[in-house]
């Protein structure tokens, strides 16, 4: 029986590992509904069926609430089924009911702290490595410290040609640019305008200036990108 249990758990672990493996750009066959579900889960930052992580302390609150409610409801459900089986089907000897309630309570007392410790350790390791909350280890989104340094937009010829979103408050972000890079890029924009003035540099040549790009250097980052820092920190 133990071997069967280990086999089932190993199969589940392999399935979970396959789910968490980063997927390539190749299209996946299958029913459209399942593919849409997987796509939505990828956008949410986790495997389908699992709740997308909420930002900050709310994430822990939701996790604890969901784990506790699942454990308590599952314990009560099993107790009800075992009690019904004992009285309606077969009166199993050997303190069956008592063992059912105390034994499963013992399992809960072991499993729940172990789950909490494992979750805390995982989050601690993720924070030590600098991954944003909810990101997958080895996923398709690299950590910010692995990204190459990019100069500020408009400081190099060929940059800031109008292909990028010009309004900083539009909420869109350049693909491939990490959330951690955004504030530094905006700060570099502000400082470059403050030092050079609006009429210097390649980005201010006639025909190259983008509408809305001329900003006063006295503007703060939050005025330039209202709500962007908050979104960028917790976006997945």
């Amino acid at each position: 029986m133990a071997a069967g249990y280990l086999l089932v758990m190993a199969a589940l672990a392999i399935g979970l590992r396959r789910l968490r493996r980063p997927r390539g750009p190749a299209p996946r066959p299958g029913p459209a509904r399942e593919r849409a579900r997987a796509r939505a889960a990828e956008q949410a930052g986790g495997p389908a069926g699992l709740a997308p992580p909420a930002p900050g302390p709310l994430r822990w609150t939701r996790l604890i609430r969901q784990a506790l409610s699942t454990a308590i409801a599952g314990y009560l459900l099993l107790g009800a089924v075992v009690t019904g089986y004992y009285y309606a089907v077969a009166r199993v000897a050997g303190q069956f009911l008592q063992s059912a309630f105390t034994g499963t309570a013992l399992l809960l007392a072991i499993a729940l702290p172990a789950f909490a410790i494992a979750s805390g350790l995982t989050e601690w390791r993720r924070r030590r490595r600098g991954r944003p909350p909810g990101s997958r280890p080895g996923g398709d989104r690299p950590a910010a410290r692995h990204l190459p340094h990019r100069p500020a937009r408009g400081l190099l010829p060929g940059r800031g040609t109008g292909d990028e979103p010009s309004s900083p408050g539009s909420g869109s972000r350049t693909p491939g640019r990490s959330a951690a890079e955004e504030p530094s890029r905006l700060a570099a924009d502000v400082s470059s305008h403050a030092h050079r003035g609006p009429a210097s540099g390649p980005a201010s040549e006639p025909g190259r200036r983008r509408p809305g790009h001329h900003r006063s250097p006295n503007l703060t980052l939050s005025q330039l990108a209202p709500g962007r820092h908050r979104r960028a920190r917790f976006s997945h």
């Binding site: 699942t70 454990a71 599952g74 314990y75 459900l77 089924v81 499963t104 399992l107």
Partner: peptide
């Protein structure tokens, strides 16, 4: 979860 508890029990 009840099934998992039952198996573990």
């Amino acid at each position: 979860f009840a099934l998992w508890l039952w198996a573990g029990w």
